[in-house]
Nucleic acid binder design. Structure first.
Ligand SMILES: [Mn+2]
Ligand SMILES: [Mn+2]
Ligand SMILES: [Zn+2]
Ligand SMILES: [Zn+2]
Lengths: 137, 137
DNA sequence: TCATAAATTATAATAATTATAAAATAAGAA
DNA sequence: TTCTTATTTTATAATTATTATAATTTATGA
């Protein structure tokens, strides 16, 4: 039988717990850019007793370890992305969904300095009305 | 004596009140990208009785009218910018200050559609450690 | 001056997130 | 395998930012 132990946790110095495994599994390959709330709701199905603190704590640790990243695009809540490679996002102001944009806008991704400031993160955010919401007038 | 009446309010269909005049005056030319809290604190000096609701209400009206805009860059609070012309921002993760970046990154400012989505806003956000915070190790 | 819609205020409510401390548990040592 | 302990989870409270409500006040135009 295939070993499904998520070695990622061990690698970043975290204890392997069922809750963390579930959160990691939910995130892996997830392209919805979930919020803490949506992660909590989903995980609750399998772990009815999980607490919000565990979700937030785990997300913080994963961000620290560089396994996931946080987006600054939803004005109402934190949103998370398991894909840490740089890419553009589109936020729908009607439904709140976030879409990956694969088009290359030739961003200054390697810039390390500007106006004397040290640049660590570069984010291009687009906002408007998504494909789906445009249909429903 | 010079007329200092802010005609902007009348123009956008809002009643001229001392509170609104003060908020508008504080915003005009302000490059600090203030939060509701910082606006409230500052205005309170002249209007000790002003309420947070007035600050938020006024900001909402001004955004609606396109007189100011809101940034999605500070993960903790809403930040406002009286300059509505498109420009890049830098957020310091150490001190929370936001700086305007005048360098032209050739953003797709005229794009109206991508992947079927209707694009209304384009924001380029840089984050890291600002000039001032780098000095204090 | 007066009528009235709009704005302001005090206050409560909501939503997201963070803090605290006790109980549970993963993981390595014995 | 059992023991030990630091880590993690949970329940709960606290905090912070923002929005909602309703009574009072005020700007504005007749
Ligand atoms: Mn993404
Ligand atoms: Mn600006
Ligand atoms: Zn949508
Ligand atoms: Zn700084």
């Amino acid at each position: 039988m295939k070993d499904t132990t998520p070695i990622q946790l061990k690698e970043i110095g975290l204890k392997i717990t069922p809750q963390r495994q579930a959160i990691l599994k939910l995130l892996k390959g997830n392209e919805t850019h979930p919020s803490a709330e949506s992660i909590y709701s989903e995980i609750s199905k399998k772990f009815p007793g999980i607490s919000f603190a565990t979700v937030y704590n785990t997300l913080s640790k994963l961000i620290e370890a560089g396994e996931i990243r946080e987006l600054d695009i939803d004005p109402n809540k934190r949103r998370f992305d398991p894909c840490v490679a740089p890419h553009t996002h589109f936020y729908c102001q009607a439904c709140g969904n976030i879409f990956d944009i694969s088009h290359d806008f030739h961003l200054p991704l390697t810039i390390k300095r500007i106006d004397g400031h040290q640049v660590d993160v570069v984010q291009l955010n687009l906002k408007g009305v998504c494909k789906n919401c445009r249909k429903i007038p």
